[in-house]
Structure formats: C-alpha cells, structure tokens
Computed example of a mutant assay.
Amino acid sequence: MRMIRRCRMAVCGLTLMTAACGSSEHHDAEEDVTRLTRAPTPASEFTPVQLEATIDSLVAEMNKNPIEPMHMAVLLKKLSGFFAPVATGANRAMSELGVTGNVLAPAGKDDDEGQVIQAEQIREMVAIGAQGIGVAPFGEAQQEAIEEAVAKGVHVVTLDTDVPTDKRALYVGTLNEDAGATAANTLLAHLPPPPGTVLIHGHSLEGWPDGIQRTQAAQKVFEDAGYVVVMSQAFFDSDDQVDLEWLKFAFELANPPVVGIAGLFNISYRCAMLAELVGKPELPIVAFDFDPKTVEYMRQGRIKATHTQRQYYEGYLTPYIIYGIQLIGLDATKQILSPLMLDDPTRVNTGVDVVPGDKVDEYYAFLNKIGANQ
C-alpha cells in the first residue's frame, strides 16, 4: 500500500472517467445494443488512408459483439512535447470506446527517476483493476512489471518504444527500418545519378537499437542505388557547433564528393547548417521530425522534405487495440491489423508522414484539425 500511495503522489496525468457501457441500471434494452462509433477524421492529403481503414475494420469486427465495460491505462514518458499528441489520441480513443481509463506520465525530474515511477504505475494500474495497459517504456526497467501484469491476465501493448520481451501482446509505433528506408527513398528522387556520396546524419553507437535500425535501413537503400555512404554520428546532447564539426569532417573526407544529405532525427536541421558552412546550400537534404528550425529551413527551400512520426495515431490506436484484444481476442485483432504489420506479426507500423518543403502550412493545418500539434 505504501508503494501504491507513493506512486499516486508521484504521477501527473490526464484522467478520463467516462461511463462504461452495458449497465442495466442506466441503459434500456435499446441502448444495450449500441455499437462503437468513431468521430469522423478530417479529410486531408496527409490523412493516413490505410491506417484509418484498418481502424474502421477493427471497429466493424468489434461491433459484431456486445459492447463490454473495461478499465485501461495508457502510461507515457511525458504528457508534453513529443508525447502531447500521443495523449490527445489516447484520450480521444478511450472516450469513443466508452471505457474508464487514465493517461499518465511520471513526474520524475529525469529518466532514471521516471523509469522507477513508471514501473510503479504499471503495478498500481494492475492493483486497481486495469484490464489493459498501453505503455511507452523507458527501457528494460519496465520489463519485470510488464511481465507481472501479463501473468495476471492484463493485456499489455507497448507504444513508441518497445521492450525485449515476448510477453507484451503488440507494439504500436514507427518501425525504424521502414522509416529509414522511406527517408532514403525521398532523397533519392532529388539526387543526381551515381557516382556520388550520400552523407547520413545518423546513429551507430550501441545502446539505442532504434537509431541503429533507422540508420542502417537508410544506408542500404543508398548503397543499393549505387552511392557511397558516409555516416556522421548525431550528438543529441551537444550544441550545434560540436555536431557541425563532425559533419564537416565527414563531408570533407567523402570521395566521391557529397551529392546529398539525409538527417534521420529531430536535429536534422544541422544538415542544412552544414550545407551553408561548406558553401553548398544547393545540396538536396531530407530531414526527420518537425523541429521549428527544420521547418524554417523547409520554408527557405533548403530542406526538400521531412518525415514525421504519427504520434497522435500511436496514442489513438493503442486503446482500440487493447479493447479489441479484450472483446474479440488477440489473434482476431492481429488478423485485422495485418495490413499495418510488415515482417513482424507483433509490431503495428503507424508509419511516417512525408512532408514536402512546400507543404508546411498544409501539414500544420492537418495537425490542428486532429489536435496533434506539439
């Protein structure tokens, strides 16, 4: 009890306490057969058509069964910044499903403290009766708590990041191999024919498999197309100048000369800074994520396109998957989700949005429509 009480004091969260469907005390016979209904998604050139169609198929299958009450929780690393659209999507989905649930994040000051609190959150949600939990884990520190939850019959879905366990039911989020290949193919359309070198602002250091997978996938696309690839390690915790020195060093060593640059993370704007530094502002560049500096370079025509993760859909899809597992079973849910799974039947790919440099305002409008601006 002491752990649970301390955990409640240590977390912050957005809480939905919506009425569960099916109570004979509050619903007449006609209401008892009410089916799930999704709120209409605003039409846009950036609307993920296949993803939306798959969710509709899941809802249609679930609607063949009587709606059941359920309690669930979605546990994120934060509720702000990158994770704000995730929280928006999760809250909206839980409201549409009519479940009782919470969207929570640790109030810890750093990741080390957050890991401890998040593990406590998982255990607390199980203790108060959650039948399903979506969790964006910090890392392996949550594995034991996840396995304990699964052992007690709780459906666990990871999102954004995964854990090395076969206990969780599914993972929902960007598949980094696919994302890296997508970014590489975007840049290929702007490159002159080989020979030439493509400079990747990527990641190769042990300890972050997602970054390695994204980088290696992009590298393979360029090499298969006949280009030489040089990779410069992205330094997230440094200021721009330190990273630029390493980028410039890699640029100057390239043989044959660099003909294009691919930035694979949220600090991709540094690739445009490099092009200025070496006097090659015309070099084609593609980026990742939607940092304000990246957007500014896109408006200037210096970055051809960026690739953004669909955080809103990570959050929105997770409660629907958890509810699907509860209502129609894991195998049936996976069968419906199969169009979103590539080579791994346990990972649901929400994909990335490819945003051309001249479509910044249109993309902002789409995010505003779905409430997904960070």
Rank of each mutant, 00 (worst) to 15 (best):
Q216S: 10
P195T: 00
Q219K: 14
P193M: 02
V229N: 01
D224T: 05
L187V: 03
V198G: 01
T182M: 10
V221D: 03
F222R: 03
I200P: 00
L205H: 03
I200Q: 08
T182Y: 11
A181L: 12
G207E: 09
V228R: 04
A217Q: 03
G196Q: 02
A218Y: 08
M231K: 12
S204D: 10
T182L: 09
A217H: 01
H203S: 05
T215E: 14
A189T: 05
T186K: 01
K220L: 15
Q213D: 15
A189R: 05
R214V: 08
H201W: 13
H201S: 11
I212F: 07
A184K: 03
Q213A: 11
H190Q: 12
G226S: 11
P193Q: 03
E206N: 15
Q219C: 03
Q213W: 14
L187E: 01
A183V: 15
T197V: 13
S204P: 07
H190L: 05
F222W: 08
V228Q: 00
G211M: 07
A218K: 04
M231D: 07
I200K: 01
G196M: 04
I212N: 10
T215D: 08
Q213R: 12
P209N: 10
I200W: 11
T215L: 07
A225P: 03
L199F: 02
A181N: 08
I200N: 00
A183N: 08
Y227H: 06
M231I: 15
I200T: 02
P209W: 09
V229S: 02
G226L: 08
L205Q: 00
V228T: 15
T197C: 09
D224K: 00
A225D: 02
N185F: 02
M231T: 12
P194G: 08
A217I: 05
V230A: 01
P195L: 05
R214G: 00
H203I: 07
A183Q: 11
P209Y: 13
I212K: 13
D210P: 15
Q213N: 11
P209H: 07
F222Y: 07
